[in-house]
Nucleic acid binder design. Sequence first.
DNA 1: GAACCGTGGTT
DNA 2: TAACCAAGGTT
Length: 342
Amino acid sequence: MENWDQQTIENFRSDLLSWYDREGRAHLPWRENTDPYRVLVSELMLQQTRVDTVITYFNRFMKALPTVFDLAKAPEDQVLKLWEGLGYYSRARNLHKAAKVVAFDLKGAWPESYEDLLTLPGVGPYTAAAVASIAFNQVVPAIDGNFFRVFSRLLKIDADIAKPKTRRVFYDAVAPIVDPKRPGDFNQAIMDLGTSYMKTSDPDTLHSPVVKYNAAYRDGVEDQYPVKSKKKKPVLERYQALVRYNEDGALLYEKRPKTGLLADFWTLPLRPIDSIEEVDGKQLTIKPITHVFSHRKWEIWPVLQEETADPAQNQRYFTEAEQEALALPKVQHKILQGLKES
DNA sequence: GAACCGTGGTT
DNA sequence: TAACCAAGGTT
């Protein structure tokens, strides 16, 4: 691992920030100002999600709920509808909870320190540091995937970034490097660097504004960084989706459990099947509907049912108009699309 | 600390 | 296509 002296650190800050001032993504909507509410909403949305995807959601969200008080007062249905399709829905519920804490418990007085921000639901080490530095000028490194990638290459840090304890290694190495005058811009500059000249695949390191600080590139081993162990592949699960209409043409849905995957969302009733032979002649599609989550792969066979008994306690019929007003997960939209095409 | 938690784009 | 990746947090 490299160790920079004070002069190198100061030169690095200067080169990084002058590049950021020239070529940083100042146009991103959440960089319009440093309102902590806007910063928090954007950071929650950006967790494990691409910038291009978030832009549309962010603008729509801010237009519907412009202040932390608007969000705190909003019904959860509205928040989830604004989040529909973004995934990781606990983020939306935690953001809603955090807004209630700030608006109601704290009367709009935002926590400004890293430690205090960490207490908000959905706010972990990265997000607390991002909000603290961007909105409140606190000098802390916002260690995300970009940060790991950029500094693993610059400093040749060999620790596996998939391991939780590695965060500490990076924190210790980089905390002294964060610019004390412009910590928020420093962190955002690292992100911009990490998605441009120092992106994951096919980087353009030679033309990077900080190429002269890049130890991995200097030594011809840049492609070995960051060190990251592999994820496990999603496990296949097969289901029948029960397709049942009532006399009004409304479709039967079932509420998912309050915890776990797609917690508390409505989908068609899903019944596990152990083998393909269990799907009988009533199936509605030639091919199954497939959907991949982060750790599971669903294979779904829609099967037409007769309207028989009354809906169970966790079931309800929804008309088409009611379905459109609901926040539904992507996999449910896929099922509906599959039915329409059959 | 490993497993869990969505979705869409890229290789 | 399967694997990998993208501004992580919670349990």
